[in-house]
Design a protein around this nucleic acid. Structure first.
Lengths: 338, 338
DNA sequence: CTGAAAGCGCTTACAG
DNA sequence: CTGAAAGCGCTTACAG
């Protein structure tokens, strides 16, 4: 079954292709009567202009791409939902690609999107990305770029982020208010800004409350995995380190820590409390439920798409782009683990 | 920065656009020498033919679409990975859309993909889908279709599925071998074939082992959620039903059941064992770890894409399509909950 | 072996 | 208010 074209409609209504095209786009120089006829007919036969042919003239593909570090990841999935739902409202389709936290793959995925002539790219930077020229290249090619969540201080585009330092400070302060004083931190890798900021928030909260910072209580989770949380917790127990709380960079390592504590018959939160970060759905399914920081992913995604639209329109009006950093509020979620 | 075109290359090498195009596509009627020159130059300037212009001639968009019932879902994510990784190898890009288990949204998403002229659609049918004409419509439009996981007996395309009855039979038999005799079943909704088959496998396993089927021990999880598993388990305890095991249609309700048992201080698996289905990553993170059935999602995804390629090629050769049902093997995973 | 020309289905500057 | 024509960047049947 062949798809309908403007030509078919023009023939059916006995008018020109030009007029059909203009009528569908609401050009002011087409009579109301003609517009109505055309639109009614197009509706009836369910005509949609071929987007590939349109692209050739307009250079708008009505397509955007998202590159995220992990696909099966609760927080990124929420962001995806936000971007996609907004994109659908504006008749955009979305390519979703995954960098697997790899610098090389991130470059490849961005190139795939550029080759598909997407109108905009939404990016959350991979942990292993140590050079940003491929990101700068997106804007050099004239493609809009919005960075969300995992950003770098060195990119010049707009970004949608949370205040990691502040959120992390709030989390640690919560532990302190619960009477905890020997707080370990399972931090993320050394490179990403977010993991640095969460660490800084942790240290600042300790300082502000007169608790001495002890680097022996900081452990690195390079993969931000369950397993690492489990292993670090076991190390703490084996070494008999004096610890009464753990603040993890994300929920997964926190859940690993909880598993280890349960297996060692240590009471949560009486002996050791555990605090996560991100509010994954799993954090309310485990026993005990996990206290954590909620990041409103869907909201961040919707905002990201709106920023893309604004920049697209500014470009059409030949206005200079003004890049902004949008900070989305986070919330402390207290559950049974603290 | 404007993208390069065939014309630019032709001008640079002082040959015709036709020859450049043919050389890049390895036409036999272009000299080896010319081919080498063209390819070397194209490589050097990183030329990629504009896929929108190519589409207009070939009617191949090199794009496929996936419609799944849920986005943030461990099993579907594995299938996505499988389809996408295979698609990337063959230079296809992938649109991922979500039906939210809704019939209306499934129709909308399929129409979006058809309007974007995808070459193929991969579909896992929504729970609420009670009419299949929109699915049949995909093939009427000449677009290839492959259904995976959640299928219907009434569609005529190829499908990649597991043997739900057999897998479910194995799960229940495992409980019986562990000495359990009063096995409750938390089943899925009434409509989807997979949920029917898992129920039938459950009943058959009971019968084959001389255990009488008792419909009062079957509970429906319409949303296949954690909460439903929790609530049904609580009902069993409140009514003091004589139950020594639960087999759930999926991991999430099983995890809900476990949570309820822990809160009621009931020993797992000594007093009541719990068996899930799907082997989500979360099932090995909770305490006790959950016994379940592993479905190799990534493999299913890869197979689905291969089937699409075969059908695409058969169509090009004008051969009639032969639709097949591919059954992927599942594995019982025994952990601490049984 | 090479290339001129037509045409895919749109959009839009221009003419009437 | 309407429409003929050019052109976006490719592919391919056809001519030489």
């Amino acid at each position: 079954m062949k798809n309908l074209t403007l030509k078919d409609i023009a023939a059916a209504l006995d008018i020109s292709v030009t007029t059909v095209s203009k009528a569908l786009q609401n050009y002011p120089d087409v009579s109301e009567k003609t517009k109505e006829r055309v639109k009614a007919y197009a509706e009836k036969v369910n005509f949609k202009p071929n987007s590939f042919a349109a692209y050739l003239r307009t250079h708008e593909s009505k397509t955007v791409g998202i590159v995220i570090p992990r696909l099966n990841h609760f927080f990124f999935s929420s962001i995806l939902r936000g971007i996609i739902s907004e994109a659908e409202k504006h008749e955009y389709m979305t390519f979703i690609l995954c960098s697997d936290e790899s610098y090389e793959l991130e470059k490849t995925q961005i190139n795939r999107l550029l080759n598909k002539n997407v109108d905009g790219i939404f990016l959350s930077i991979a942990d292993k990305t140590h050079n940003l020229s491929h990101i700068q290249n997106i804007m050099n090619k004239g493609t809009n770029l919005v960075i969300f969540d995992k950003y770098s201080k060195l990119t010049t585009c707009s970004s949608i982020v949370i205040d990691d330092q502040k959120a992390s400070y709030t989390a640690v302060e919560h532990l302190i208010k619960k009477g905890k004083k020997r707080i370990a931190h399972f931090r993320g890798p050394l490179l990403p800004q977010n993991s640095i900021d969460r660490f800084l928030g942790y240290r600042k909260a300790l300082e502000d409350h007169g608790i001495e910072y002890n680097k022996d209580l900081v452990f690195i989770c390079d993969e931000i995995s369950n397993r690492e949380g489990y292993d670090h917790m076991q190390t703490i127990l084996d070494k008999k380190l004096d610890v009464d709380a753990v603040f993890a960079v994300a929920d997964l390592p926190a859940i690993g820590a909880i598993k280890c504590l349960i297996e060692n018959n240590i009471k949560i939160p009486e002996e050791i409390s555990v605090m996560g970060f991100s509010n994954w759905s799993i954090s309310s399914l485990i026993t005990p439920t996990l206290s954590t920081i909620d990041q409103p992913g869907e909201l961040m995604g919707r905002k990201a798409f709106q920023v893309f639209l604004e920049e697209r329109d500014a470009k059409k009006r030949k206005e200079p782009l003004v890049f902004k950093k949008y900070i989305i509020e986070t919330t402390l979620i207290e559950r049974k683990s603290t």
